[in-house]
Amino acid sequence: MSEFFQYVINGLSQGGTYALVALGYTMVFGILQLINFAHGEVYMLGAFTGLYTLRFFGARIVEFYNLALSVGADQASTTVAILTAITVIVISMITCATVGYFVERLAYRPLRNSPRINLLITAVGVSLFFQYSGQLIFGSSPQPYPDLFENLESWTFGSDENLLVINPLQVFVFVTAITLMLILRHVIFNTRLGRAMRAVSFSHELSSLMGIPTNRIITATFMIGSSLAGAAGVMVGMTYPKVEPLMGSLPGLKAFCAAVLGGIGNVTGAVLGSFILGLAEAFLSGYGAPTYKDALAFTILILILLVKPSGLLGVHRTEKV
């Protein structure tokens, strides 16, 4: 029985990492009806930003927090580690937001009024561009991630027969995914920016007639989505300490499946879909067929498109001719 709960924990933490990527997908889709295939690569860039920040400035950041908190080097090391992690995540989010800005400005905006298929092909192109320039710049060998939480003990429940182990990092990822989702919901439903985003998502032309700076809103959406991918990259790097330039493609596709499962365009749906996918994968690998793990996401995608194309929480939109 304890295995069951361990699978739940594993699934939720894996789902959390998908959720962070899926949120960005769903936001961009909601506003542009564009599947931004380059999103997985922004996530990869986020992981590498975190890696290089930790490698070159990690010691200095830790030193800074040690001084700021005026504690001994080993006393409050967990607090310092968490603060360092948050700092690195913020740096990576800012970098990825910048990347998102340029991707939107240079690759997508010039095609704003062309057929949607052009935009889609461009998205694939941008994705490949990042994958291969990543291999050129970072090298194609996987690199280990510095372990900030090395001294952090896992929480263990039960004894030998009914062992349940929870890694604090898993909780950190889970909590961050939920928190970011709540913040996003707040932004979308309770702020001026959010209202503008919803208006643009409804109709570009109508909202610009109402005086909404459409382009600026779309750019903002891209930047927010990309910064979420950046946060995801760092957190995945910390949980699974191996990063490489092609790391973004498969999680990117899976997160996309999760977003469709939950109802693409819907923030809560993206998170829900990710957790369902994470749990399904954990049970599948645990109870016997790990070989089919990667196929599962796409099986779910096909099933949901057949049964309920708008996704679990999606609203059906009628196409107006």
Binding site: Q6, N10, S13, Y240, A282, P290
Partner: peptide, 8 residues
């Protein structure tokens, strides 16, 4: 990258 379920 995730082997937790098989290991469980």
């Amino acid at each position: 990258v995730d082997f937790n379920s098989q290991l469980t």
